[in-house]
Structure formats: C-alpha cells, structure tokens
Design a protein around this nucleic acid. Structure first.
Lengths: 252, 252
DNA sequence: GGCTAGGGGTTGTTGAACAATCCGACAAGA
DNA sequence: TCTTGTCGGATTGTTCAACAACCCCTAGCC
C-alpha cells in the first residue's frame, strides 16, 4: 500500500517480490488493518460510528494515531469522514454496487484483453485461485469460496500486468465486501458463479479473447443483479450481523 | 471527495445537488490543495523532500495538521511516504508512465463503449473540453491546451457514467501531470494530439464504437511513447523547472 | 579498504489543552 | 400544535510540547 518504489531488482529478483512483507508498519497502519478486518468481516456494521475517544481507549492508542489510521481507511473507502461529525463505517447503496461493477468490468476486461500477452505467473495466479475455490467448495466452506472468488477476479484483472490496475481492483473488492454483509453467504449464491469462473478460465486458456469478453460481461451483469436485488430485499435498517459492537454507537 | 451521501431528495431536490458546495473544508484539506498545486505546476520538483518542520513553519500549521495533509497527497499519489524518512514529491519513472497508460486505456475504453448509452450532459462535456482546447490553441496558450486535453480525456472516461471511474481518472491524470515536468510544453508536442482529439470526438458522435476503440488505442499508445521517450531523453537528474524551493532539501 | 560504533537530525507517537462545531432539548411565540 | 430561538453537553479540529524510535552520516578502528 505504500507504493513508491522505483524498482532496481538486483541479483535477488526473486526476493524482491517479498519486499512488501517486511515493509515496517507504524502503529497507525496496524490499527487500520485491525479495523479493516473488523469491517470487511462484518463485525462492525455499516453505519456504525467510530468514536475517536472510545476506539482510542479500546485499542490503547492516542487520538492522533487513531486519526491517522482513519485516513488510511478513508483512502480505502471503507469509512466515510464527515467534518466535525466523525467517521462512520461506509454504507453501500445499491447505486454504489452498480458503480463498482461498472469499474470492475472495465478492469477485468483490460485483464482478459491482455491475457494473450500476459506473463505466465499471472496466468498461474488465475489457475491457483480457481483451484482454491474448488477445494473450498469440496469442503463446503462457502466463505472460503467467496474469498477465492474475489482472488480469482483479482488475478483476472491482474493479467493486464499493471500495478495500478491491481491496486484499483483490490480496493474495489474490499469495498464490495461491504455489500456482502447484506447478502447471506449461501451455497446457492456462490455455486453458479463458481461454475462460470471455470468456464471463464477455460476460455482464457484457449485464447478466445472475444468469447471471454462477452462471457465476462454477462457474468458481471448477473452478479451485479444478484447482489443488488439481495440488498434491496434485505432493505435498509436490517444489517444481518449480530451486533456485538459495544464500543461504538449507531448513526442517526 | 467525501462521497458517502445516501440521497433522500425531498421537495428540494434541485438544491440537494448543490450540497457538495457547502461542504466545509478543514485546514488540512486546504494545505493539501496548496501543496498539490505547487507540485502539479512543477514548483516543487519531483524528489524534493517535504520536511515536516520546515513546511509546518512555512505554512504556519502544526506538524499534526501537516501530516494529515500529507495523507491526502499520498492518497493522490503525488507524494510518497517512507517510514521514518518522511515524504517526498513523487518521482515518476518511465515504467510508471507505462503503467498509467495501461489503466488509462482501460478507463477510456469503458467510456467510449458506454458512449451510445451515455447521458447527453456527459457528451456535452466532451464537446466543451474540445472547444476549450481549440480556443486555447487559437490563443497560442499551450499550457491551457494541455489542461483542456486532460479534461477532454477525463470526460471521455466520464461517458461511462461511473463516479468511481471519474475518480480513478482524475487521480490518474493528476499523477500524469508529474511527468509533464520532464517534457517541455511545446507546440509540436500538443498539436498532433489535438487533431486526434477532434477525430476521436467525431467518431464518437457518429457512433462508430469499434472505430473509436482502435483509434483510442493507437492514440494512447503514441502518447505514451512520446512521453516516455521525452522522459528518457531528459533523463534522471535533470528536472527542467527552475528550483526556487528553499523550504526543502533534495533527496539523496 | 571495509566494518563497527556513535552522534545529529528527523520522524513516530503520545497526552493534554483549547477552540469550533454539531446535536438534542427546552422554552417562547404565533 | 407547530415553528423558531437559545442553551448546554458532547465530539471533533487543531495546536503544542515532549520523548522514543529510527535513519543516515561520519569518525575511528581493525
């Protein structure tokens, strides 16, 4: 997430890929990660207010550090900041989901278009994600299927070989996770899309660029529709997660 | 930039659109704007180190507020933050420019694809930007031509009608401005691309979707090549701007 | 020459304080 | 009853000062 490397891969190019892991993180970044996990896992319901004082005490960090963490989360669109009112866990509207899928289509299309010229590692990533999804399906672990599904699409966009596209995409998918709180993670929801992921992958390997594109467009269109209708059905005011968050108060 | 409105336009729907204007801005945001302008106009050369102490004194804001502003600039990728080392004005490598154009192609392609279904205001924006560029050309104001050119492409991507695509795109173009410091703003540079903007617009109006796409691809490919070669020619260590920045020290 | 230890300077983090702002509640008036 | 004005509590915005942690550079050592 830091991003500003100007690369000079020395003789240890293989190690260079691991750079990001030892990138030392300040307290603020770690706080942001904790909050991000809580949000994307639905433990902090959308609309929840994140009080500086309460959270600062709960996490044992100063207000200033917490505010720094908030800025990172605002950057990822997981929370919104309103002047003199504080920060709130983002509420995704159906219109947001619509918008997200528009951008998603653009990014993934860029990926499949570049597929014939893509680096072998990138294609491998696609296969790996698909395999993970299938394995999770075998175990009946549907939340893992969901994760693998996101990773699959992340790597499809990754075929473009562009750092910025990767970035955009992961940001987008994190945001999309916010909507998953509204749609129950069920068998029937993921199963058909897993099949279509396999179809997509197959088309990708066979190099039928145009076919992949039309299938991808249909795929995303259907997925969008499923999520939007699920959101509309669940309706506002009914975030299904059991709300154990005592640290924070609701939005008005 | 705040973004989290969930609309309930009452009887004053017309006014609701103006909401964003009274969105008050904190000191940090204004500081960030000042710095952004200085950077994009080349008054702060890439690689310049932005010392918290020096800048805080120069702008008469506290270190904490300044750090808040830095976060916003990091978000826009205009500066990079290195832990325990500080923030530096971003140095764009040719690889970065390459990457930027990959994403740019994806976004603008999304725009032209949606052109047939685009809202009339969006199409109007394209025409306006083009007209502005032509007017600036008539005046011989080549920096204005450059600005209008960016706005033109921004509105092309805008045809997709997606808030997030607009966002991505403006972010991208701000970043691209960083590279413009390395390429002299000259007649010969902009003039051919202005012509091709006109061609693009013409194709857009006539609805020849496929033709627009291939022309756009060629266009961006050429533009990328021009900028990259210009950067390579200027080479590292020769940022052409006269460096009046006494507030800050160079990077090592 | 190459390596280690130390020092100067910068950033990271904290805590406290005050000002600005928002929100809800209460009261006064039509 | 409904609207409007005003007040007070609570939260955020901003600043300041201090210390710890860290990086880079240099001096000295082998």
């Amino acid at each position: 997430m830091v991003g500003g490397e100007q690369g000079s891969t020395g003789a240890f190019g293989a190690l260079a890929a691991e750079r990001g892991r030892l990138e030392r993180t300040g307290v603020a970044q770690r706080v942001a990660e904790v909050l991000r996990d809580h949000i994307t896992e639905g433990r902090l319901a959308p609309g929840t207010r994140l009080s500086e004082e309460a959270l600062g005490e709960a996490l044992a960090v100063s207000r200033n550090t917490l505010r720094e963490a908030f800025r990172l989360l605002v950057d990822q669109r997981l929370v919104v900041h309103e002047l003199n009112r504080g920060v709130f866990v983002r509420i995704l509207t159906p219109e947001d989901v619509d918008d997200i899928f528009t951008l998603r289509l653009a990014l993934e299309t860029a990926g499949v278009r570049a597929a014939p010229r893509a680096a072998p590692e990138r294609l491998a990533q696609v296969r790996i994600a698909l395999a993970q999804a299938e394995a999770a399906e075998g175990r009946g672990d549907w939340v893992a299927v969901g994760t693998a599904d996101l990773r699959f699409h992340q790597s499809v966009a990754g075929l473009a070989g562009s750092m910025r596209i990767d970035d955009c995409m992961s940001r987008l998918l994190a945001e999309l996770r916010l909507a998953f709180g509204a749609v129950p993670t069920a068998h029937g929801l993921h199963e058909p899309f897993l099949r279509r992921n396999q179809i997509l992958a197959g088309l990708l390997e066979s190099g039928e660029s145009d076919d992949v594109e039309v299938e991808l467009t249909r795929y995303l269109d259907d997925a969008r529709r499923v999520i939007v209708t699920a959101m509309r059905a669940a309706g506002p005011g009914a975030p299904p997660g059991p709300g154990p968050a005592a640290v924070t108060s609701e939005r008005r």
